[in-house]
Computed example of a mutant assay.
Amino acid sequence: MMNVSDCAVTMVPSLKNRALNYGDGCFSTMLSRKGHIQLLDRHTKRLVNDAKKLKIINSKVSFSIDDLKNLIKTFALESYNAAKQSTETKSVETEWQIVKLLIARGDSERGYAPSMDSAPVFIPSAKDYYPVADHTVSLGLAHMKLAEQSILSGVKHLNRLEQVMAKIELADHEGVDDLILTNAKGLVIELTSSNVFYCIDGIWHTPCVEKSGVNGVMRQYILDYMQRNQIICNVSDMHVSALLSAQTAFSCNAVTQLVPVSHVSIGNESTCYDIGPSQCLAQKISDEIAKEKS
């Protein structure tokens, strides 16, 4: 049985790496403050679960949540300390960094079929992050549709071409900050790089990601928070037109946390949201996350 000590950690993968050739792997993008990762338990659990779904972890290859925690903790702290030492070259100092860990199945010769006993390659990266306080986002509707693939649904795999094309489309949408992505039936799935929650008549809703979309770490945290605090939230399929009936909404991911939505435009119709409830919820969740230890 191969374990994490047999695997390579590199910032420069080889040209034979399956991540480069086939998008064969998974990743997680994390927020680090002073070298400490927020929601580390959830990120590592998601990485291991995704690696199992992709069969990177199998009967011949294994690594644990604790293995990933140790790797990420060490890298995040080293990255922060290195950034601190180079502050004299920066005009603005920040205690925040975005840390990403990419797990590739490994290297292989030509062909889609992988070797099930190839050693995974861990590819970490980090960059400084400058949070923007009290900002909001406005939403439009993407023309492109997300495909349904139950085998990969919820997985943060490396094939992000749908999101790339959505970002290209976003550049052509004037007056909006992000786009709502739907499936072929017009059901809301997610935003270009975030999940979405919206409230209709006092009931929160978030899209189901069982057939497409990403089950984001922050989405999971918010759902758990709502359950603990007896806030009703339905995880369900809902047509995009329902967003026009919402009173408040927010986007969320592990880096930006919760960002209130100011308004949504769908076709010729638009709705302005009350950002107050989303701001209040965002502050409570941010305060709770800040108390957690990585």
Rank of each mutant, 00 (worst) to 15 (best):
G202Q: 02
I103D: 11
L181V: 14
V214F: 09
T29I: 13
R46A: 11
V188L: 09
G186P: 12
I65T: 15
L170M: 04
G140W: 15
A184Q: 12
I168W: 10
M1I: 07
H263E: 12
C280A: 08
I98Y: 01
E190A: 10
Y225I: 08
I180S: 02
H263T: 02
D224C: 04
N81R: 12
L141H: 12
K34C: 12
G175Q: 03
N49S: 14
Y80S: 07
H263V: 00
V137A: 10
E109T: 02
P124C: 05
Q283D: 05
L141N: 12
M165K: 04
D128K: 07
D201Y: 02
Q85Y: 07
A19H: 02
E109S: 13
S86D: 11
K84R: 12
G106P: 03
E210R: 06
L141V: 14
D6F: 03
I285T: 03
T271D: 01
E190F: 03
N17M: 13
H263P: 02
L179Q: 02
S115K: 09
S194I: 08
V188E: 00
L54R: 03
A142F: 10
D24N: 09
T29S: 15
H43G: 08
P207D: 00
N253K: 07
S251H: 03
Q283L: 07
M2Y: 11
S59P: 06
W96I: 04
S278W: 00
D237P: 01
P120A: 05
G276Q: 07
V164Y: 06
D237A: 03
G35P: 14
K100F: 00
P124Y: 04
H173S: 11
E78M: 02
I72C: 14
Q230P: 01
D50K: 00
K52E: 14
I203C: 05
I151P: 08
T192L: 03
